[in-house]
């Protein structure tokens, strides 16, 4: 994991036409190095969500190119983009977004269903991932039988189970209390240490400070990129988080 970018955006522009054209993103260049941990901050309306949708292969840019693991997303059909998303992106949402009627194990295994992985292997991989998240004994529980922190761990397990190029987290601690949130951030640290590439979108400074660098967005442009905590070396995972107790 040298410096070939896992994800890169070049001159990306996204325009919505709701009456007047609105430039949600207005010429963004950004590359996420393999194994890096990046946070995106910015006030609402700054283009955070749009950036996340583009990086997450949920949407295509109006102009410019988005490349994920060497594939130009812009040129893909909806179907190919969905397949790429399933293979290369792991999503973690603020509201967990687990399937309410499926058990924790089945939730973790869900992305593998759409990849055509057979049931036995799905179970094994899901169990292994739940174990790694420290909730190996919760596999048979439904989401409503789990605490908020446990739910988010299930969601992270689901995001990691496909061994994605990028883990994309949208306010992952937004629905959790400070203590639980800090524990979840530890999980991200561990994933980072294990070599996963992570992009966290947040408006909380202490969440963003866990990353290698913080990308500040304002009015659809990158205002500045701030290096924090760990010195550049990806995957080192040094304990530089003095603000947060974990």
């Amino acid at each position: 994991m040298a410096d070939d970018p896992a994800v890169s955006l070049t001159g990306v522009r996204k325009t919505y036409r709701v009456g007047e054209p609105v430039h949600a993103l207005d010429g963004v260049d950004l590359s996420l190095v393999d194994g890096s941990y990046t946070a995106v901050m910015g006030p609402s309306g700054s283009g955070k969500s749009t950036l996340m949708n583009l990086v997450g292969c949920l949407d295509a840019p109006t102009e410019g190119t988005v490349t994920v693991d060497g594939t130009d997303v812009t040129a893909l059909s909806d179907r190919e983009r969905t397949a790429l998303r399933g293979d290369e992106i792991g999503f973690v949402f603020q509201t967990f977004n687990l399937m309410p009627r499926l058990t924790a194990r089945e939730n973790v295994a869900l992305p593998l269903i759409f990849q055509g992985v057979d049931a036995a292997e799905r179970g094994e991989r899901a169990d292994a991932m739940l174990g790694r998240m420290g909730i190996g004994d919760r596999g048979d529980h439904r989401p409503n039988e789990l605490s908020g922190g446990q739910r988010q761990r299930v969601a992270i397990a689901r995001a990691l189970v496909t061994d994605p190029t990028l883990v994309l987290a949208d306010e992952p601690t937004g629905n959790l209390d400070t203590e639980t949130g800090a524990r979840i951030l530890d999980v991200f640290d561990e994933a980072h240490a294990a070599g996963n590439t992570i992009l966290v979108v947040t408006h909380e400074r202490h969440v963003a400070e866990r990353a290698d660098r913080i990308v500040h967005l304002l009015d659809g442009r990158i205002e500045r990129i701030e290096r924090v905590g760990r010195p550049g070396s990806a995957g080192a995972g040094g304990p530089a988080d003095d603000e947060v107790t974990g």
């Binding site: 997450g56 949920l58 179907r79 969905t82 397949a83 998303r85 399933g86 293979d87 992106i89 999503f91 949402f93 977004n97 687990l98 399937m99 869900l110 992305p111 759409f114 990849q115 689901r158 496909t162």
Partner: peptide, 8 residues
């Protein structure tokens, strides 16, 4: 969610 995790 299903579409996000790769459902066609």
């Amino acid at each position: 969610v299903m579409k996000a995790v790769g459902a066609q």
